[in-house]
């Protein structure tokens, strides 16, 4: 412990803030991931089935949805935080705090994830979809029994990418009082020149990222029966 407090003097003094900040980061990431995950998969599936060569082609609907996704994808998160604040207040009653940070996180992550899901599902062999149709599957059955099942390894891989970038976004949540490790690193570490706090925040974030990456790789490998090496 002596060595630790030597190199990380300020960290040693503020263990509770680290626990708190880590929890906030995990909390924001998890809640956003679940909600944006559901919306993202829903929108991604809609893009695939209504898109060109989709099983329920709807050109106008697709074009509109596609544009909306593009627009939301291109708004930088930090601006989204501000722009969306009134809307956040309507939904969660406040525009400050961890909960309030989750709303813009969802709004930013959903279109990104939807696009990733779309790409993952478009990789499912068209021939397999056609075979399912020929075997008398309904569109709903094709979505659940073919697209989501065949696309699962790719969905897992892109989920990892999205989750990691989501953790990046939570670091900015501090600007609306969302807390989290990013906030701790900037507010305490950077602004008060407590370098060890910044470094420790970074280390914890890296550990979380590695864990997600490792679990993702294992799951992707486990579900991927197409590319067996």
């Amino acid at each position: 412990m002596g060595l630790f407090s030597h190199y990380f003097p300020n960290v040693a003094d503020s263990i509770p803030s680290f626990v708190q900040a880590t929890w906030e980061t995990i909390y924001m990431t998890a809640v956003t991931a679940i909600i944006a995950g559901v919306f993202g998969i829903f929108i991604g599936v809609l893009l695939v089935i209504t898109g060109p060569d989709g099983i329920a082609k709807q050109s106008t609907f697709y074009t509109i949805l596609d544009k909306i996704v593009n627009i939301f994808r291109s708004i930088p998160f930090i601006i989204m935080l501000a722009v969306i604040a009134p809307f956040t207040r309507i939904i969660v009653g406040t525009s400050i705090g961890t909960i309030a940070a989750i709303v813009p996180l969802i709004v930013s992550t959903t279109p990104f994830y939807a696009r990733q899901i779309q790409n993952a599902l478009l990789d499912v062999d068209e021939g397999i979809i056609e075979a399912a149709q020929a075997m008398g599957s309904s569109n709903l059955a094709i979505i659940f029994r073919v697209y989501l099942k065949e696309g699962l390894p790719a969905i897992i891989r892109s989920s990892v990418v999205v989750l990691i970038s989501l953790i990046g976004l939570t670091a900015m949540a501090g600007t609306v009082g969302g807390g989290g490790l990013g906030n701790l690193a900037i507010m305490t570490g950077y602004q008060r020149f407590e370098n060890d706090v910044t470094i420790m925040s970074m280390i914890i974030i890296l550990v979380i990222v590695f864990i997600i990456q490792i679990i993702g790789d294992i799951l992707a490998k486990k579900t991927d029966h197409e590319n067996i090496n």
Partner: peptide, 12 residues
């Protein structure tokens, strides 16, 4: 129907 490229489901 049977197809040239089999079109079996890889995940099953």
């Amino acid at each position: 129907i049977i197809f040239q490229h089999f079109n079996l489901m890889n995940a099953r």
